[in-house]
Nucleic acid binder design. Sequence first.
DNA 1: CGGACGTTTGAGTCCGCTCAAGCAGGGTGG
DNA 2: CCACCCTGCTTGAGCGGACTCAAACGTCCG
Lengths: 226, 226
Amino acid sequence: MQVSKCDIENCFLCIHCMPEWRDAISVKKTTYSFKRGETIFAEGDAVKGIYFIYEGFVKVHKQWVDNKELIIRFAKAGDVLGHRALVDNDIYPISATTLEDCKACFITNDFLEATFKTNPSFTYKMMQLYAAELKKAERRMRNLAHMDVKGRIAELLLEMQEIFGLNKDKFIAVAITRQDIASYAGSTYETVFKFFTELLQEKIITTSGKSIKINNAKKLRGFVNN
Amino acid sequence: MQVSKCDIENCFLCIHCMPEWRDAISVKKTTYSFKRGETIFAEGDAVKGIYFIYEGFVKVHKQWVDNKELIIRFAKAGDVLGHRALVDNDIYPISATTLEDCKACFITNDFLEATFKTNPSFTYKMMQLYAAELKKAERRMRNLAHMDVKGRIAELLLEMQEIFGLNKDKFIAVAITRQDIASYAGSTYETVFKFFTELLQEKIITTSGKSIKINNAKKLRGFVNN
DNA sequence: CGGACGTTTGAGTCCGCTCAAGCAGGGTGG
DNA sequence: CCACCCTGCTTGAGCGGACTCAAACGTCCG
């Protein structure tokens, strides 16, 4: 089954854009749909392959005691999931859960390994992808260690606007719970809540349900610097 | 100038072990020695290439306001420095400083790029190296977010024993300042100090100058779990 | 009408940071 | 050889940020 390239900018890795895969595997068979809130894979699951998102938004998170987790990052169309597990094909060290309805191609380890062997430029791009993520991870590590909670929440809001973009009403294009914000910032529901009431009172942000609009990015950035 | 392979286990990337490099560049010209405490490169420096350590110990750190930093990781013989900068050959996002006298091969970006093009298995190994580091970084992110200071310090001590090994007196093979421990744990000199007096009183560790011996790893692990 | 569940708010507590005051020890100059 | 200072180590007191817990409130639904 032959299809044209997908419409993600500079995509080099989804099944539509990888000649080897496109020619060898049925697109139907490797494309999965996930409903909002569904788990794509969970920490501890056996690794069988890798996912390329080409529609929707996903959170990647790692468990801590009982009901505590840290959201490692958010992912959107064009991003890769489960690739950390490549090193030792054992179990996923993280979970992936959809924030919106989502479509993803799934490529098995065998196929992936074969591609690495035959397509060096693909390997090279994957390496760069890792390097970029590593750089981000290190920045975030420092922020988690030294920045206060308000700064981390403020930075997240600005980042979300960057990653997800705005919908027609200028709200950040993904609805997100305060619990998720807390989990990303390494904080608690209540603390996020209190900071939000502060931001709402000063009209720095506006909310509508779980949607958020940033009115005054400059003031928000003020919390990041201190 | 032809030399035999280095004695690092499974080394695939130092100048002694990479045929392309060994044949093309003088080992003398690409091998640098650094004294204890010397800066190999600093955050913000222009990226010119990549370093492979084959002797000594190094800390990789990232600056925060004035005298606050976070130590991202420790590196030893066989590890790579400065590879995050590969993505966009711009400036180093981190600094590297030696903890002990150190020897490292330096490979320029040009050479590296050329090798990626001609030696896919090298690229593949570099990719795996990134993936492994990313996995570690994510674990550490979660710990910095959720674990308390004592847990983080305890984990670091256990990790250092793992990474650096022991010398003949069963002390961890690298001397490290309390300030560095604080910088790794995202804490302060005084807090580390106080926890150390506690650990010394309960004889969980022993110190001699800046050297540390772990007497009771089990009790130390108790702090990690809570 | 009442229970169930999520939201909002307040009070209390504690961890860990900051600051600053004691203590050495060791080098320097009288 | 001793007095002095400087620097780095050690300890305590105080404070504040953020977490926990729980009560009050509202809203939805049976």
